[in-house]
Nucleic acid binder design. Structure first.
Length: 343
RNA sequence: GGCGCCGUACCCAAGUGGCUAAGGGAGCAGUCUGCAAAACUGCGAUGCGGCGGUUCGAACCCGCCCGGCGCCU
């Protein structure tokens, strides 16, 4: 059981286990959290929804009994949730763990959430559903590239970067502009100098692509055996509309379409497998370009316990290295000031 | 053994003498700062089973061969 020293706490160490869906994060995460005497802080944009358990592959009751899991089941499927809310909730859990001298341990595949937590979000206002609806409405009645044109007027730099079809990001940029009076480009520039929340060790779990795809297909089959259709039908019956962000997640989207008669059962299974493969591939692209990830490749027959051992070694040397590292700049400056004042 | 139909990318497939061989699926590569399991972008044949021939020009017409399917003996 690991207890952080004062010196460690100054550095605010944080360990994150990331990787594509179905790579085996959950199982290895539970072993590691247990060994480290800490909890699992999920970084998963789908497990936050209550009642969506099967296709989000939430940890089992058994897994949760041994190790508390946080940042799961935070909102109802029709409530808004986003990276900003995740960051705030995660920071609360992290402070609590530091108070108990425990090591915060993040496990999850939502790259944006991990980044938002470690590096913070830019100082832009949160999303405003009413304003978005208004912008979408305007776009609907004007010509095709209207919103992109509007963005080009106020933030030509970002407009050049965004494809005219990329409505989601164009609307976000216009939203920030309207709400704060500043261009999103400016807000981003300012954020680049922001201090990180913690000293992170980010471990990326990797598998051979073919092996990963095979695991994905097997996992989708178990979702259906575990009642994905029934769960989706139940959510729809409770009035959770297919247009909700939560219902657009993998599994619920395909099954809802099947239940609506869009295609047959076999096609729903086929599409969910395919879409999950595509998703895993996008996750790999995201994490591949994220700097400072330590990659660990899992061989197919390798047991989770043996992978956990390897990762434990990485975590121990990370903590040992922090011990020898001078305090972060902000704290060093404070010590320096004190010396000057004293002298 | 004979006759007929067919062979275009990993898969399906359009094209049946003249732009640079449609399209779809799968796959690959990428973007991402408050919906991120979302949304968005980019990319496959110097070649049409093979070898000859006809033609200014052949995936397309002709011959032979190879492979597949069907029917007949």
């Amino acid at each position: 059981m690991l207890r952080l020293s004062d010196h460690h706490l100054v550095h605010r160490p944080l360990v994150a286990l990331v990787g594509p869906t179905a790579v085996g994060k959950t199982e290895i995460g539970v072993i590691l959290a247990q060994t480290l005497g800490t909890e699992v802080l999920a970084a998963d944009s789908r497990q936050v929804y209550r009642g969506m358990d099967v296709a989000t592959d939430k940890p089992t009751a058994e897994q949760r009994q041994g190790v508390p899991h946080r940042l799961i089941d935070l909102v109802e499927p029709d409530q808004r949730f986003n990276a900003g809310m995740y960051r705030a909730a995660a920071l609360r859990e992290i402070e609590r763990l530091y108070g108990e001298r425990r090591l915060p341990f993040i496990v999850g595949g939502t790259g944006l959430y991990v980044r938002a937590l470690v590096k913070g979000l830019c100082d832009a206002p949160p999303s405003d559903p009413a304003l978005r609806a208004e912008l979408l409405d305007q776009a609907g009645r004007r010509e095709k590239g209207y919103l992109h044109g509007e963005l080009a007027k106020v933030d030509p730099e970002l407009a050049r970067l965004l494809h005219p079809h990329d409505e989601v990001k164009i609307i976000r940029a216009l939203e920030v502009q309207r709400l704060s009076g500043r261009s999103l480009s400016d807000v981003h520039r300012e954020h680049q100098t922001a201090a990180p929340c913690c000293s992170p060790l980010i471990i990326g779990l990797m598998r051979d692509r073919q092996a990963l795809y095979k695991r994905i297909e097997q996992r989708v089959d178990t979702f259906f055996m575990n009642g994905l259709v029934q769960e989706t039908a139940g959510l729809l019956a409770r009035g959770y509309d297919r247009g909700l962000a939560s219902m657009k997640g993998l599994g619920y989207r395909q099954v809802a379409e099947f239940l609506a008669g869009g295609y047959d059962y076999m096609e729903a299974v086929r599409r969910l497998k395919r879409d999950t493969r595509h998703f895993a591939k996008r996750q790999l692209t995201w994490f591949r370009h994220e700097p400072a990830i330590v990659w660990v490749t899992v061989d197919d027959p390798q047991r989770s316990a043996s992978v956990a051992d390897t990762l434990l070694g990485l975590i121990e040397s990370f903590l040992a290295e922090l011990r020898g590292r001078p305090a972060p700049a902000a704290i060093a400056a404070r010590i320096e000031t004190r010396k000057v004042t004293a002298g």
